Simulated assay, not measured.
Amino acid sequence: MTRLTSTPRRLPRRRVSFLVAAAAGLLLASSPSWAVTVTSCDRQVTIERPPQRAVSHDISLTAMLLELGLKARMVGYSGVSAWKTPAPELQADLDDLPELAPRYPSLENLLDADADFFFAGWNYGMRVGGEVTPASLARFGIPVYELSESCAHVMPNRVASLDDVYGDLRNLGRIFAVEARAEGLVQGMQARVAAVQARLGEQPQRPRVFVYDSGEDVPFSAGRLGMPQSLIDAAGGRNVMDGVAGNWMQVGWEAVVEQDPQWILIVDYGERSAAQKRDFLMQHPALQSVSAIRQQHFVVLPYLAVTPSLDNAAAIETLAAALHPEAFAP
C-alpha cells in the first residue's frame, strides 16, 4: 500500500502540459458536436474527435507532435532508428514511446497499436500504391494527415515553403485541440525568420548552394519543390538544383560541377557521418574544380533541420550566417 504524505509532489512542467492536453482532449471527445475539417494535400479530412492514440512517422513529424505537447496522446512512432540518431534531448522524449517499425510501418503495425490517427507523408511512411495510405487506413477508421511538403508526390509541381510548416502546425493544433500552443510555436518561428531577414537586408549576391544528402555513384539532393529550397532562399542563397522540378531526388555529378556551387550543405544523418561525407566530397576527382571544394565551404545541418520541422528556423539562421558573415558580425 502506498503511503500518502502531506506535501504534494510537483510534476515537471512538461508532464503537466501532457496531462492538461490529455484532459482537454478527453473533454472534447465527449462532446458530440466537436469535429474539425482540414485540408491535407488534395483531400479534405474530417476528424470527429481529438486523437488519443496517435502515431507519427519520421523524426521531424514526431518532433512536431512532441513540441505540441502531445506525447500523452501518442501510442508510438515509426521510421527513426533505421536512419537517424536523435539529439539527446529528443531521444529522452522518445525513450518511453514504442517505435512500431524502424523503417516504414505496416498496416498490421498500426492496427496492433490501435491507432486512431496517423501523421505521415508521401515517402515519409507512405508510398503511392503502397499498403499504408490514407485510403487503406480509412477502411479501419484511422484518419491520416499528410505532411504538406510531401504533397509534391501526389500534386505535381507543388512547391514546399515555410508556410507549409506553419500550416501543418496550425492544422495539427486544430486536430488535437491545442490551437494556442500551435500558434505560439508558429509565431516563435516567424519571429526568428524575420530577424534573419532584417539582418540580411537586400543582398547583392546570393551564393550558390548544393544540398548533399547522400550517395556516391549518384548524389541525392533537393530540387526546387523541396523544403531546402525555401530554407536556402530565406538565408540569402540560391539552390543550384532549383532548375529541377523535384522534391528530394538523384542528380548527376556532372550537373553539380556545371553549377559550380560556392557552398555545400551536408545533411547529417544516415550510416555515414557528416565528416565522412565531407571527406568523400573533398576527395572526389570530378569535384576538384568546384568552388566549394577548393574553398572548403561546407555547412552541416541535421536531418531534422532541413526537413519540415520547428528546427527550420535554426537552419535558416545557421545558413545565413555562413553565406553572409558580414551581416552577422558582432
Rank of each mutant, 00 (worst) to 15 (best):
V290Y: 05
Q296A: 10
I264D: 01
V257F: 04
K277N: 08
Q283T: 05
L310G: 15
N247S: 14
S291C: 08
A275Q: 13
E254S: 09
V299K: 00
A286K: 10
P261N: 04
Q296V: 03
T318N: 04
R278A: 01
A315G: 13
N312R: 13
T307C: 09
P285C: 10
K277T: 04
I264F: 00
L287D: 05
V299I: 06
D279E: 05
K277C: 05
Q250S: 09
L265G: 01
G270A: 13
W263T: 03
Q262G: 14
V299P: 00
P285E: 13
L319T: 02
V251P: 06
W248V: 03
H284R: 08
Q262H: 09
N312Q: 15
P325N: 08
P308Y: 11
A245M: 07
L265I: 00
V267A: 08
Y269F: 12
A320H: 05
P308L: 12
L304C: 14
L310D: 15
V306R: 06
E317H: 03
W248Q: 06
V256M: 05
W253F: 10
Q296P: 07
D260L: 12
S309I: 14
E258Y: 11
S289R: 15
H324Q: 10
R272G: 14
W248C: 05
I266V: 07
S273A: 09
Q276I: 09
Q250G: 07
L301V: 00
T307H: 11
P285Y: 08
P308V: 10
G252D: 15
P302E: 12
P325G: 11
P325C: 06
A275L: 07
V300F: 00
L287E: 07
V300Y: 00
L319S: 03
K277F: 02
I266K: 01
Q262S: 08
A255H: 13
A274T: 07
W248M: 03
Q259T: 12
Y269Q: 10
T307V: 09
G252P: 15
D268T: 14
Q295S: 06
L265F: 00
G252L: 10
A245Q: 12
V306M: 10
I293S: 02
P285I: 08
L319N: 03
W263E: 02
I316C: 05
P302A: 09
R272F: 12
E258L: 11
N247K: 13
A274S: 12
L281D: 02
P325H: 07
V300Q: 01
V257R: 05
S309N: 15
D268F: 12
Q250C: 02
L323P: 09
L287K: 04
A313N: 08
Q283F: 02
A322K: 01
V299Q: 00
Y303S: 09
L310M: 15
A305S: 14
E317Q: 08
Q283D: 10
E254T: 06
A274D: 08
L281Q: 02
Q276Y: 12
